[in-house]
Design a protein around this nucleic acid. Structure first.
Lengths: 215, 215
DNA sequence: ACTGAGCTCACTAAAAATAGTGATTCTTTT
DNA sequence: AAAAGAATCACTATTTTTAGTGAGCTCAGT
């Protein structure tokens, strides 16, 4: 692949902007076509020059990454959106995924991961860093804040077990991990199937991951 | 983490063998339990001593890394396999991934990446260098477009069946829908588990959704 | 003190998934 | 023509999941 990937960087921190672009220019496949400190300018910029990937911070004044992504998708703009952030907030991740963002990773990600992410989304793929994925699925079980008047009243134990099911553990393995009987795990599993109104493991996992998106 | 990771190195080039082991012994978590110049001796060696990770070259006389990996997986040996190579041949990568190799990186990778890779696979993870990852995910979920370099890792039929699995259908139901035998569905399912490197239905669904295969 | 929810465990039984092996047919590629 | 990949089917065997029923125990709130 020799075609260069046109990247537009958006971040309100100049220092980060510099660091990021210096990393990107070192890659022969990537071409930084512009850097902006205000997300509101992105729309205008895109009118003039085509861009393959917009790399942006999630938290910025005036217009944050979520809004920016929403704007771009709303206007049916081709450019892919890759969001960077310092924090790993499940709510934000949820909004981004819901908004159809193409990738998401932490600012402390390695150079390689960033480049991989850019190339992945540029070719139509999705890239969510492992940490983000993990945190996100974890957050689906956290009994902490979030609230949002969650419909499924899953107990703490049920969430715990659902979490492990999603992590591909068998009932036996879960039983060993939690120091309980396999019977108990299966009972919880039965209740989960019933509560979530799904038929099998596939439904449990699907529901678990998509739950936040459906509402 | 204080437990040492037992590593067996296999390469037909003595010089590389030396260099590699000198790098590895410098890490307190890694213990080089043996070095071999002939892959055919690996099976025997593993009978005597337990090994966590086998680090091997992809191209060797008598038995290459692909065959070695296949042998180990076939014999259901616990040891993880990390493959090194000088080239970045998509076909080889394809075969390795298909063969369920645990990691793959270029010989010119940095010391840190190698150590990270070893630790990752030792703990049950997968490690593929960035180019490998890109090629893999690209090919895996490219929807019939582009993919001039690498063919889709998942066949059309496999994707079809994967979708139905995600939609909570059993093998029997899928068989009826597609007018094929239940045996065939199960064969495809087996191949999917292997190709996606997951353990069960939960893994299939998780991968499918998080990779954006499902809309 | 009572109640209900959550957590626990047990037993049975059927259905489904997982694992391994092998094989045929067809098509595409080399 | 030969090789390789894709799709098909079969057989065995084991593990896991799914389903139904019942029950004791603890803790929090009423």
């Amino acid at each position: 692949m020799q075609k260069s990937i046109k990247v537009l960087i958006v971040d309100d921190h100049q220092m980060f902007l510099d660091g990021l672009s210096s990393i990107l220019v070192g890659d022969e496949q990537v071409e930084v076509v512009g850097v902006l400190t205000d997300a509101r300018a992105v729309i205008d910029t895109l009118k003039d020059a085509p861009v393959d990937v917009v790399v942006t911070d999630v938290s910025m004044p005036h217009m944050d990454g979520i809004q920016l992504n929403a704007e771009l998708k709303k206007r049916n703009i081709q450019a892919k959106v890759l969001v960077l952030t310092t924090h790993n907030d499940p709510d934000i991740i949820q909004k981004l995924i819901k908004g159809g963002v193409d990738g998401y990773l932490l600012k402390n990600a390695e150079k390689n991961e960033l480049l991989t992410a850019i190339k992945t989304v540029a070719t139509g793929g999705k890239h969510f860093s492992q940490e983000v994925q993990k945190k996100y699925t974890e957050s689906l079980f956290s009994s902490a804040t979030t609230s949002s008047t969650v419909q499924t009243a899953l107990s703490k134990r049920e969430k715990e077990i659902l979490h492990l099911i999603v992590e591909e553990f068998t009932a036996q393995e879960i039983a060993e991990k939690l120091f309980i009987s396999q019977h108990t795990v299966n009972t919880h599993r039965k209740n989960l199937l019933s509560k979530l109104g799904v038929k099998n493991t596939a439904g449990l996992v699907k529901q678990t991951i998509l739950k936040g998106l459906l509402k």
